[in-house]
Design a protein around this nucleic acid. Structure first.
Lengths: 118, 118
DNA sequence: AAATAATGCTTGGTGAATCAAGCGTTGGTG
DNA sequence: CACCAACGCTTGATTCACCAAGCATTATTT
C-alpha cells in the first residue's frame, strides 16, 4: 500500500475532510490532495508528524511508509518465526484512538477475514 | 550539540576530508560544508542515512539530532486526547501478527463503521 | 620559489516540497 | 429552480534542499 492511499484511509477512518485536516494540522488541503493521490511522494518528517497527531496514528509507521525508517525492530523485538507471511509490524494497527466497541468490532471482522482465507 | 557540529566530529574522527566523504557517500562537499557550518539545518533522511553509513554511525541518532525523532521514545508516550469519548486505550488492538494486507482491510472497515455512525 | 594539488568554502542554478488562490462539481436549503 | 456552502482538485508562485563549478588558502612537490 502506498503512503498516499494509507493517508487517505486514515483520514476517512476519522471521517474528516481535506479542509478539516488542513485546519487542525496546518497542512494545506492542496498538498494533502496531492499526497493522497500519489502526485507527491516525499513529505517531510514534520508534515508526517502533524498528520500522525491529527489522525491519532503512529508517527513511526508513517515514517516507515514514507521510506524513512526500516520496519522498526523496536525494543519489543521478537525473533521472526519461520511461519512466513505475517510481519511483526509494530504494536500493530497504527490507529490509537479506538473505542472499545470499535476494537471489538474490528477483532470480529479480523476473525472473519481470516476464517475466509483458505 | 548541534547536528552540524556532530557531523563534523564524526568526519574528523574518521580522519576524512569533505571530498573523501563526497566520494563515498555521494553527498556533495559543498552541501557537507554548509551542513557542518549550520548554514542548512534540515537535511533529508536519505542524506542522513548515507552519512551514517560512511561514518559508521547510528542513523537513529542522526535522525534525532536532526529533530526528526524523539530520543528513543517507544510507544508508551503520553498523548493529549482530542475530543469525544474515545479513550486512549493504550495497547490498542493488541493483535501483533497482522499482515499488511489485513491492516489495510481493517482500516477500510474502520472508515466504514465510523461513517455509518452518526 | 614556482607549480601543483588538496582542502574548506561561496555562489548560482535546478528541481521538488509546500502553499494561496481559484476552478468545477456536488449537496443541501429556501 | 436558484443559491450557497463545502468538497476535492489543479495551477502558478515561493521556498529550500542539494549540486556543479569555481574561489581562496594552505600544504606538497620539484
Amino acid at each position: 500500500m502506498t503512503l498516499g492511499a494509507y493517508l487517505r484511509s486514515l483520514r476517512q477512518a476519522k471521517g474528516m475532510t481535506l479542509r478539516a485536516v488542513e485546519k487542525e494540522s496546518g497542512v494545506s488541503n492542496a498538498y494533502l490532495s496531492q499526497l493522497e493521490n500519489g502526485k507527491l511522494k516525499n513529505p517531510s518528517p514534520p508534515i508526517l508528524h502533524k498528520l500522525s497527531q491529527v489522525y491519532s496514528a503512529s508517527y513511526q509507521v508513517l515514517m516507515e511508509k514514507a521510506g524513512y525508517l526500516m520496519p522498526s525492530a523496536s525494543p519489543g523485538d521478537k525473533k521472526a518465526g519461520s511461519s512466513g507471511q505475517r510481519k511483526g509490524h509494530l504494536p500493530t494497527f497504527a490507529v490509537e484512538d479506538l473505542t472499545e466497541e470499535e476494537e471489538e468490532e474490528l477483532l470480529r471482522y479480523l476473525a472473519f477475514i481470516r476464517s475466509r482465507r483458505e
